[in-house]
Amino acid sequence: MSGNGNAAATAEENSPKMRVIRVGTRKSQLARIQTDSVVATLKASYPGLQFEIIAMSTTGDKILDTALSKIGEKSLFTKELEHALEKNEVDLVVHSLKDLPTVLPPGFTIGAICKRENPHDAVVFHPKFVGKTLETLPEKSVVGTSSLRRAAQLQRKFPHLEFRSIRGNLNTRLRKLDEQQEFSAIILATAGLQRMGWHNRVGQILHPEECMYAVGQGALGVEVRAKDQDILDLVGVLHDPETLLRCIAERAFLRHLEGGCSVPVAVHTAMKDGQLYLTGGVWSLDGSDSIQETMQATIHVPAQHEDGPEDDPQLVGITARNIPRGPQLAAQNLGISLANLLLSKGAKNILDVARQLNDAH
């Protein structure tokens, strides 16, 4: 009898209710805020589980004197976190989706994509230029951005401005803007500013005609071990179906173009009346040469937790077992079709030249 009692006690200790789920994140304040929001949602869904947040620095956090596009290494903000995932030191990792490459290392998958916040870019102005827009900034004003995508589009749109690289986390960039006289304004992701509670610093939100956004911008991705079915089931509740389908289309477009950090590629997606609209573009580094096109596809946005595919093969690095396969494939095909259209119009040449120029500098 006593033996059975011990077995029952052991089973209770090993039951999922007692389990601590370890969540990996970057150390920056924004990353911690984003991770806290994901953990809060998981806690609400699984009140019996405990969650421990483990923060670590990544290569991208450490190399702050070089433009991201020049470092010449993929997975700048993800490699150390993936290493911890691989060694079973954490069970899942919360990322900004735009930091996750469209091809993940073997053994990993994006197990959830959370509801997207505003994906557009924002302009934050130096205190002396508050009330201005990019259009009304004085001639030769210097605007800071760490992104080739932003610089290429904005140089084309605002030729009277000069664009220079600015690195560091959000706090560091804002301090550089406010305390030094080098920059009249800087460009940042609206979602990051909003998550930090800095709505009052948003001086201008850039519309798609001015600057399309990065693939996955404004959404959070939760990376897990691809074979860890328990954790895949656990994080599945975080999937937002519309965000998922938009981001599958965007990531398929980028992957098929073979774009990345070192080339200016941008997108804009919208879901309306059962249609998914995808606009994508590529630019030369100075913005003088560009190709942009829009395509659409009829896609039914499923309700969360309709029964999805059981075999769960990944699409552009994403596993969404609780979302039907048909809409996911339709979104992926839309991204591939748009990429093929741009490639047929000469996108590869623009991107190759951009890559060579970026590598040469």
Rank of each mutant, 00 (worst) to 15 (best):
E293H: 14
T102P: 10
L85A: 07
A249M: 03
E73Y: 10
I63N: 13
D307G: 14
V142Q: 06
S75V: 05
G111S: 07
V265P: 05
K128M: 15
V237R: 10
G131F: 10
I231P: 01
V267C: 14
M196T: 06
G216E: 00
I231Q: 00
G281I: 01
R164T: 12
S75D: 06
L85S: 02
E135T: 11
A44G: 11
L278G: 09
I350S: 04
F108D: 01
F253V: 04
L154M: 09
G131L: 08
I53F: 13
D240G: 01
P208K: 04
L343I: 02
V316H: 03
I71W: 07
F125M: 11
G335E: 03
R175D: 06
S96F: 00
L188N: 06
V235L: 10
A249S: 14
D286Q: 11
A151V: 11
A226E: 15
V282L: 05
M295F: 07
V215Y: 02
E258N: 02
L49G: 12
H300C: 13
P241H: 09
E73R: 11
A331S: 04
G48Y: 09
V316N: 02
E306P: 07
R195V: 03
A252P: 01
A226I: 07
R201Q: 09
R246A: 15
K157H: 13
D121C: 10
F77R: 01
Q332Y: 14
M56V: 07
A303M: 03
K140Y: 09
F129L: 12
A84V: 09
T41I: 12
K132H: 10
H239C: 10
F77Y: 09
Q304C: 13
L170E: 07
T58E: 10
P208D: 04
Q204C: 00
R325L: 14
D91E: 12
K227N: 08
R116S: 07
D233W: 03
Q275F: 06
A330Y: 00
D99R: 03
E250T: 04
H300V: 14
H120D: 10
V263F: 07
F51V: 13
V265A: 12
D61Q: 00
S146Y: 06
T298L: 06
T41L: 09
R321M: 07
A191W: 01
L177Q: 05
T190K: 10
G335L: 01
E162K: 14
V222M: 09
P324S: 08
T58C: 12
E242S: 04
G107A: 09
A55Y: 11
D178V: 11
T136C: 06
H305D: 14
G72F: 14
L285Y: 15
H160P: 10
V282T: 07
A55G: 08
N88S: 11
Q204D: 02
N88D: 07
V90Y: 06
H239N: 07
I54H: 05
S147L: 00
R167P: 03
G197M: 02
V143W: 03
I291M: 13
V123T: 14
S69R: 11
Q328K: 13
G326L: 05
T243V: 01
A152H: 14
I350D: 04
M212I: 14
V123D: 03
S290H: 00
S147E: 04
T190H: 15
K43A: 09
R150F: 00
T78G: 11
L177E: 00
D286V: 11
A354N: 01
V143N: 03
V267S: 05
E135L: 12
T298E: 11
E135R: 13
S262N: 15
H160V: 05
L188V: 03
N171S: 12
L193P: 09
V38C: 09
T172G: 09
L85K: 04
E80H: 07
V130A: 12
K98M: 01
S288Y: 06
